[in-house]
Design a protein around this nucleic acid. Structure first.
Length: 454
RNA sequence: GUGGGUAUAGCUCAGUUGGUUAGAGCAUCAGAUUGUGAUUCUGAGGGUCGUGGGUUCGAGCCCCAUUACUCACCCCA
């Protein structure tokens, strides 16, 4: 018989992992809801026409496509088949694909439902997405994103609130050493204006790697992409400027004196920082990083990225403002949106590495009822029901087996208390309750047991 | 898409210049213990060494192919 396996880059999540994952999901969800976001779910699959062209050529390559049902060759163009033009054949035999992120399906939803939606619309969405790239550390083909976006307002309060939410989620998860990097697309544009010639995107992609590969490697890459060293002097002067956020802003304000884009970026950023003060929060964990660029082509305003320090995993959260997302589906409907996303799978890996999962989050039942014989098992059912009425998660060992085995079961399931029932307990009504951590055992009435555990 | 690495028990891994019957820890099961787990002691089960071919008197080890996994690059959560 052939051994069953999983598709590359996908995982099962057993009870132990699910307990930890749900701890993350619950933390994020409760923060989203506290900030007034409402839930949304969209289908796992979208029409390919909805997805293609939104993520650039690279992104189109990484889309999982779904083969048409039935005789999918029926409608395929014979010429495409014989010439072996796979890209054209793909379009003939596949019209659906798995979602690549949550932002594009959200934009589609907004355009389709704009008459029912009250703007500004704040939605959160926690669902898996799929990417057909080669898996590696911290990178899967199926992974969950937790998105929160606001569409229909260009207020910078949204940007400030994103920072607040990130801080609150990380506090809830117990992650302390992290950095929220912030930048602005217009500041990047200002930077591009300072070096004449060369492709803007190539510049952003290259400088984004600055802290990873260093100045020399970045310059090397830029040279290979047609940038002249002489034109890069001022760019690197800015990128290498060290100082506080306020000092950085002052420095680039002089540099961007003649740049409309640069001035707009600085103004937005300054306002966001001021709003943080108005919210009575500090700039702790927030870092203005002029080299931060994000790949997705639709960001137009502030951009964010969150990294957990001392953990070798990519960013665990990112986002930004896009002025033109709905415009992709309807050119007459250009709504401004801003949003961000947590990568649960990377948060999980990072928290595992940092040993941040609290053990309480892994407890399922609080009590197990163990029994010595049929009569005590029967008696235990009544006790079990009383516990459950009190809202205590509890279970009884269903089979008649040795007490050893029942205690082992509790031990493995991390159940903290075991009520042992035998003929003595049935007779007296006093229950033997054992604390599995300390090993202590005492005789208590049902009411006393409930008070102890609750 | 490009380039490395790995593949031996359910899991994590040893395995000498190629040499008889392939080992350990953990896990599982049984017992020490007929009203007590995690700790301790004793014992047991479990492997066509990823797959296919080649070299050799002889291959877990060397060579070729293939598949899976994994790490890095591109890009990204």
């Amino acid at each position: 018989m052939e051994k069953p396996t999983l598709p590359k880059g996908t995982r099962d999540f057993g009870p132990a992992q699910m307990a930890k994952r749900q701890f993350i999901f619950n933390t994020i969800r409760s923060v989203f809801q506290k900030y007034g976001f409402q839930p949304l779910e969209t289908p796992a699959m979208e029409n390919l026409s909805t997805l293609t062209g939104k993520y650039g050529d690279e992104g189109d390559q990484l889309l999982f496509k779904i083969l048409n049902s039935g005789d999918f060759l029926k409608d395929a163009n014979q010429e495409n088949l014989t010439t072996g033009n796979w890209k054209l054949v793909t379009g003939d035999i596949s019209e659906k694909g798995l979602r690549y992120d949550l932002t594009v399906p959200f934009a589609r939803y907004v355009v389709m439902n704009r008459h029912e939606i009250t703007f500004p619309f704040k939605r959160y969405q926690i669902q898996p997405v799929w990417r057909a790239d080669r898996p590696q550390k911290g990178r899967y083909r199926e992974f969950y994103q937790c998105d929160a976006d606001v569409v229909g307002t260009d207020s910078l309060i949204c940007e400030a609130e994103i920072i607040l939410m990130i801080k609150e989620v990380f506090k809830g998860l117990g992650i302390q050493n992290y950095t929220i990097k912030i930048n602005h697309r217009a500041i990047l544009s200002g930077l591009a204006e300072l070096c004449k010639g060369g492709n803007e995107t190539s510049l952003f992609v290259a400088i984004d790697k600055l802290d990873k590969i260093g100045e020399e490697k970045v310059k090397e890459e830029l040279r290979s992409r047609g940038f002249a060293d002489a034109n890069l002097t001022e760019v690197f002067e800015i990128l290498n400027f060290k100082g506080t956020t306020a000092e950085k802003i002052e420095f680039i304000t002089q540099k961007f004196a003649n740049s409309e884009a640069g001035k707009k970026g600085i103004s937005d950023l300054t306002q966001v920082l001021q709003l943080l003060k108005d919210f009575n929060t500090t700039e702790e964990h927030v870092e203005f990083d002029i080299a931060l660029a994000r790949g997705l082509s639709y960001y137009t305003g502030c951009i964010f990225e969150v990294k957990i320090n001392n953990v070798a995993i990519g960013s665990v959260s990112g986002g930004g403002r896009y002025d033109n997302l709905t415009g992709v589906f309807d050119p007459n409907d250009k709504k401004s949106g801003v949003g961000f996303s947590f990568g649960v799978d990377r948060l999980y890996d990072a928290m595992e590495e940092l040993k941040l999962f609290p053990q309480e989050a892994q407890i399922s039942s609080k009590v197990l009822i163990a029994h010595f014989d049929a009569e005590s098992k029967k008696y235990g059912l009544g006790v079990l029901q009383q516990l459950r009425v009190q809202g205590i998660a509890s279970e009884i060992y269903p089979d008649a087996v040795k007490i050893q085995k029942q205690l082992e079961y509790a031990n493995k399931k991390l159940i903290p208390f075991v009520i042992v029932i035998g003929s003595e307990e049935v007779k007296s009504g006093m229950l033997a309750i054992k604390n599995m951590k300390t090993g202590e055992q005492q005789k208590l009435s049902v009411e006393e047991v409930i008070n102890l555990i609750k």
